[in-house]
Design a protein around this nucleic acid. Structure first.
Lengths: 219, 219
DNA sequence: CGATCTATTGAGCCTATTCAACCGTCGTGG
DNA sequence: CCACGACGGTTGAATAGGCTCAATAGATCG
């Protein structure tokens, strides 16, 4: 769809590779072709948190647009590939092809929406529900891309997940254990990073229930 | 700067007025001219959280771009005014005027950055530091717009602030009291929503210190 | 096989929440 | 006019949920 209008530079990456680093000058955007990437945000005083997870079809690099310098670091969580375009080139192409501009705006706005929902999760849910929601979103991302959702592999360590959710790694571990004990998820043989979700609806209900258990705003 | 290329519809609003509502079809964007607005995000299971605060110069409505329906509700926290443009019109104008497109992309990306930073705050800071950071960001927003930062008026209730920060209203109240006792902020006569910040640097240091007090990732 | 890294689990602590009482302001109606 | 209720804010006491520290186990790799 976009390939017809744009030249992409292709770049293969290995796990742990950085696509761009915080502080670098920004001039190019990257479209994830294969693999999984995390965006880590770090504040002036040294705190850091992964601010987003990106799959095939997602763009990387928007954080550099406002200032011209990247505000985050993009890290591959797995081997993969990205297609890169210069921002200027993309803008010129979008001026000629309205649909392209719509696509880009839609992509950024979708990231905004995901961040909002992640913040909602962090602000309103218990640790267990947050982890459950994380898995649900993951499954949703896979489903959108036509991949299987009954057997998902989280390529991240407990520490990474915790960092993303605003929890400590031990809390993530405990939450997963509790979810497992409750039958909402299943650990697969050989590797506790492979998780099955017997019923997405059950998981959704769990989040819902634990949400309005705490949300006693009624009085 | 944009007025020369676009026709804006002007709309005056009162406190509590909604600019658009969650679920409505999206077709127009709004530029804040005067006033303060909050964006409230609500999930399918009824949780809700304010997902952003918007001042003069900020855009409202991006949440409707991906799906064509608004995912949030925009509420005025004060009387104010917004300038509205149809999204289609804006896109057509941007195709002719490259600088306009850059401005819009920059505006969206800036919102992404603010959300990321808010999430970082929620994920890594204690209640006191979160409230301090909130005030600091507020002051920063005022400064960007050339307004005074030594005397800020938070138009929001403790409940609203708490909702934005992922805290209960009592926790916000306590945090403000503690900051006040520590001399980092001052409540002004007549109204505990008027707050002075004697030193922005002191506030920044407080956040920094309380951050690496908890961030004992070292071992 | 040891070294290292990741995950799990327990015990105790600490912090934000919950529940509740109380105060001050504002607006309304007897 | 003042009494009353509604509302927003503050503060206290007790609770609970997540964090810290620590020990243990499994996995991976040289």
């Amino acid at each position: 769809m976009m390939e017809q209008h744009l030249e992409f530079g292709r770049r293969k990456v290995m796990a742990e590779d950085q696509i761009y680093q915080c502080g670098q000058v920004f001039d190019t955007l990257h479209l994830v072709s294969v693999g999984l990437f995390k965006i880590v945000n770090l504040s002036s005083d040294g705190r850091e948190q992964s601010a987003g997870l990106h799959f095939k079809g997602d763009w990387l690099g928007f954080d550099g647009i406002p200032s011209g310098f990247h505000a985050c670091t993009a890290v591959a969580l797995d081997s993969g590939e990205v297609w890169s375009v210069r921002y200027d080139t993309l803008l010129q192409a979008s001026a000629k092809e309205p649909m392209l501009m719509r696509l880009v705006l839609s992509a950024i706005s979708a990231q905004l929406a995901r961040n909002r929902d992640a913040a909602l999760s962090m602000g309103t849910l218990s640790a267990d529900a947050r982890v459950a929601d994380f898995l649900l979103q993951w499954a949703h991302s896979l489903a959108e891309r036509g991949m299987r959702t009954d057997q998902i592999n989280v390529h991240m360590s407990r520490a990474d997940i915790g960092n993303y959710l605003g929890l400590r790694l031990e809390s993530v571990s405990r939450a997963l254990s509790r979810l497992s004990r409750g039958g909402l998820i299943l650990f697969n043989e050989k590797g506790r990073r492979d998780i099955s979700i017997p019923s997405l609806d059950a998981l959704r209900n769990f989040i819902h229930d634990s949400a309005d258990r705490t949300a006693n705003n009624v009085h």
